[in-house]
């Protein structure tokens, strides 16, 4: 049975799309047929991060409106056999997504895919609501910073009450924390909330910690999900997170200040 994951955060710019692209690609790398769905109608960006922006012909809203079939709208990744993207529409119509329409598309995707990764827009408006509504599991992307942590807590409240699972009285959405843009050096100096602090405040399981990394911008510049840069710290941290998502026990890396030599740094050696 397919698993529907939502990548959400409340606050914008914390790394939802980067995370959706990385986790979706990581699942496909491990042989799972995966689709990443962009819910940010009006401001689509997943296509750019995935490097398929010039191949978008039909989008999510076209499928909902019956202007295209799902097969026509799904964009197959050029690098990986098992990976597909469903782009968001650039329409300015806020009501383009309907609960009924989205539900139909998700259920249809769930028949052919093992994982459906929903990339939520920021905020708590309709797009964000619909991205989480059908989810089985949620990945709450948070930066170690006050406004992001508070917004994440707000999203946890919504995940618990405003979902199909909650309304049907099923088991609640499994919530997991992904702490991104983590800077161990600043944590040591007492300038940044540590991973234990954020875990304590939000009180949910930790999926992973992604270090603040130059690799993320380099990857998005090129339209390559950062997880494919397996030499980078962020790429490796995302890779560990995918393994944990699949139930593997992985120790958390990159939590401490890296004391590496120049050459090691250059070649991104593992611990």
């Amino acid at each position: 049975m397919a698993k529907v994951l939502v990548v959400t955060s409340g606050k914008g710019g914390v790394g939802k799309t980067t995370t959706s692209a990385a986790l979706g690609t990581g699942l496909a790398l491990r042989g799972h047929k995966t689709v990443i769905v962009d819910f940010d109608v009006g401001l689509r960006n997943l296509d750019l991060i995935m490097g398929c922006e010039r191949r978008v012909v039909y989008d999510f809203v076209n499928v909902i409106n019956g202007e295209a079939t799902l097969t026509q709208a799904l964009i197959k990744d050029k690098r990986l056999e098992n990976l597909y993207v469903l782009a968001a529409s650039q329409t300015r119509d806020k009501d383009a997504l309907t609960q009924e329409g989205v539900g139909k598309v998700i259920d249809e995707l769930a028949q052919t895919f093992e994982y459906v990764v929903c990339d939520s827009p920021a905020g708590i408006e309709k797009g964000a609501h619909l991205a989480m509504y059908f989810a089985d599991e949620a990945i709450v992307v948070t930066n170690p910073e006050v406004s992001s942590v508070r917004d994440s807590d707000r999203m946890l409240g919504l995940l618990a009450s405003k979902s199909r699972r909650a309304e049907q009285g099923k088991d609640p959405i499994k919530e997991r924390l992904l702490l991104t843009r983590y800077n161990p050096e600043r944590v040591t100096k007492g300038e940044m909330l540590g991973v234990e602090d954020v875990e304590e405040i939000l009180a949910i399981n930790l999926l992973g910690v992604i270090p603040e990394s130059q690799a993320v911008l380099k990857a998005s510049n090129q339209g390559v999900p950062v997880i494919l840069d397996d030499q980078s710290d962020a790429g490796q941290a995302y890779s560990d997170a995918v393994d944990r998502l699949l139930g593997k026990e992985m120790p958390h890396r990159f939590l401490d200040v890296q004391k590496k030599g120049f050459l090691q740094r250059l070649f991104g050696g593992r611990e």
Binding site: E145, V146, V149, R150, D153, V187, K189, G190, E191, M192, L193, G194, D197, E200, I201, L202
Partner: peptide, 15 residues
Amino acid sequence: KDTASIAKERLQIIV
């Protein structure tokens, strides 16, 4: 007092 602890306290209260 380091700013991270201030952040944590403030968050615990507001959350």
